[in-house]
């Protein structure tokens, strides 16, 4: 149904919004097909970073609105990486504002960056405990956030180092060393728990 517009009675803004509508709707459809298709990935990242389903939903909603507002600025290696960067920023803001940010541990590339090979746990022992998914989840949740985010992006979202470096805003070399360190910490955590439980 078309509504004849009496231009004399309509101010400039409402005319503008009328004219923008078809563009906006096309824009929203484009946003759906390029960005919102990654909603599961966005929620997964938020869920792991915030450790809270409700907070993750709120953060993803905020991130979607932010992303839509800056949709024209979409750039980088992939739309997914661009969107995930927005989601990650929103989560970090949320952590800071809630003072949940307990990663007081400042990561030192020089001291912590070399992959430690001091853990010598029996892989079979690890496998037994690893069957307990809660235990694995707790081990990931206990990681400082700068390691947790790269582990989630790599292991669960299977993103490339280049994409991760865009999302986390660090050089690719730092992505590599954080992944190494994060995996060392996880292995140690899993191994230590095995030692504590096993005779």
């Amino acid at each position: 149904m078309t509504i004849p517009l009496r231009l004399s009675s309509i101010d400039a803004n409402s005319v503008k919004s009328q004219l923008q509508q078809p563009h906006d709707h096309a824009n929203l459809r484009r946003f759906e097909s390029t960005v919102l298709v990654h909603l599961d990935a966005a929620y997964n990242l938020a869920r792991w970073l915030l450790n809270d389903p409700a907070a993750a939903e709120d953060a993803v909603q905020d991130a979607c609105i932010r992303a839509f507002r800056f949709f024209d600025d979409l750039s980088g290696p992939s739309p997914k990486a661009w969107f995930m960067a927005v989601v990650r920023n929103t989560c970090i803001d949320s952590l800071r504002s809630n003072k949940h940010h307990n990663a007081a541990h400042e990561y030192d590339e020089e001291i912590d960056g070399i992959a430690g090979a001091q853990v010598h746990d029996n892989p079979e022992q690890i496998a037994v405990r690893a069957s307990d998914a809660r235990w694995v989840r707790a081990a990931i949740a206990a990681l400082p956030v700068e390691f947790r985010e790269v582990i989630v992006l790599r292991e669960l979202e299977e993103m490339t180092y280049k994409e991760i470096s865009v999302i986390v805003k660090v050089p690719i070399g730092t992505v590599m060393s954080r992944l190494s360190r994060g995996r060392d910490l996880l292995s140690q955590q899993l191994g230590a728990d095995v030692k504590r439980v096993s005779p």
Binding site: L28, L36, E57, R137
Partner: peptide
């Protein structure tokens, strides 16, 4: 071993169905 453990036991959380419609509504 770690990769196998994570793939077996670390869930990739899917967005709740209501979240997608809530987002679309909000954008509209």
């Amino acid at each position: 071993q770690l990769r196998a453990t994570l793939q077996a036991a670390a869930p990739r959380y899917a967005a709740p169905p209501a979240l997608r419609s809530a987002v679309l509504n909000q954008l509209q």
